[in-house]
Write a protein that binds this DNA or RNA. Structure first.
Lengths: 148, 148
DNA sequence: TTACTATTGAGAATGGATATCAATATCATG
DNA sequence: CATGATATTGATATCCATTCTCAATAGTAA
């Protein structure tokens, strides 16, 4: 099983008869460096630093490619932008999203997952994927409590 | 406390110095009749039956109005469309969404809600609202099991 | 009625994402 | 290494949902 994202990309390109390009390698590097939850636009800006001539379309196409290759995951939060995160860690996780500063915190909860399966089973529903998002204010965006 | 949606709308309009119009009343009626999870486009088509001259913008504006008035709830599912549902029943609920036929099943689960609060508290996060969606295949869209 | 102002409808504009297409880069092969 | 077949790129046009603009119209209080 291939673990390294670069190798994973190469393997996918090979298998599909696609070509390895400077843009794809570079965008992958930047994507992985960037940390999580980048939008296409953010990635485009970052990519232009090392590749001034890069086009918008290429970034979009490449992100789709990463998704198909299993390297990235598409996320749709309520702000309407599509964001991408590396699919490195295999475990499913959910998100806490701060409505003020935009910080995104990841979490996992085994019990919730289990209860979800129960609900699905009860409705004879075959779940393929799910999404749990808690919107609100992160600690540093909350109005401070004053000491009485 | 006002319960009836029409009254609720009138009260809101009054309070904001807004006007009651045929379009708003009619769209509300259609919206409530339509059942749940209508997109603006669906509602537009429905509205044109009784009001052939209605404009797209009016439907959008009116749905936004309903949302502000607390009569409707905006939902963003992964298909990219914004859908609206009546806010009549006050209880929060989550969704099972069939990826094939688009059916949306609602459910509530007290235990999951509780676990969510726990997670939030642990991260010192003040949740304002949340979203739980399970995507997959509903019973009738699943490949039939053959009897062995 | 009148007069004030909110609302409407048509169409333009927006913004994120995708499609088009000629020029270019990749790569297996000779 | 040169070549040819073809995948990829970048610029731009296009798409689609949604919002904005603005002149005409409708609601409402007086």
């Amino acid at each position: 099983m291939i673990r390294n994202p670069s190798e994973q990309l190469e393997a996918y390109l090979d298998g599909q008869g696609l070509k390895s390009t400077r843009q794809r390698d570079e965008i992958l590097r930047i994507f992985l460096d960037a940390g999580h939850h980048v939008s296409a636009d953010e990635l485009y800006r970052l990519a232009r630093k090392s590749m001034p001539g890069i086009g918008y379309a290429t970034v979009y196409r490449t992100l789709r490619l990463f998704t198909e290759a299993g390297i990235a995951h598409e996320r749709h939060f309520d702000d309407g932008l599509t964001r991408y995160e590396p699919h490195a860690k295999d475990t499913h996780h959910d998100h806490l999203i701060c409505l003020r500063c935009g910080t995104i915190i990841e979490f996992e909860n085994e019990q919730i997952e289990k209860l979800q399966s129960d609900v699905a089973r009860r409705h004879r529903f075959a779940v393929q994927n799910h999404k749990l998002e808690l919107y609100g204010l992160c600690e540093s965006c909350q109005p401070k409590k004053r000491k009485s």
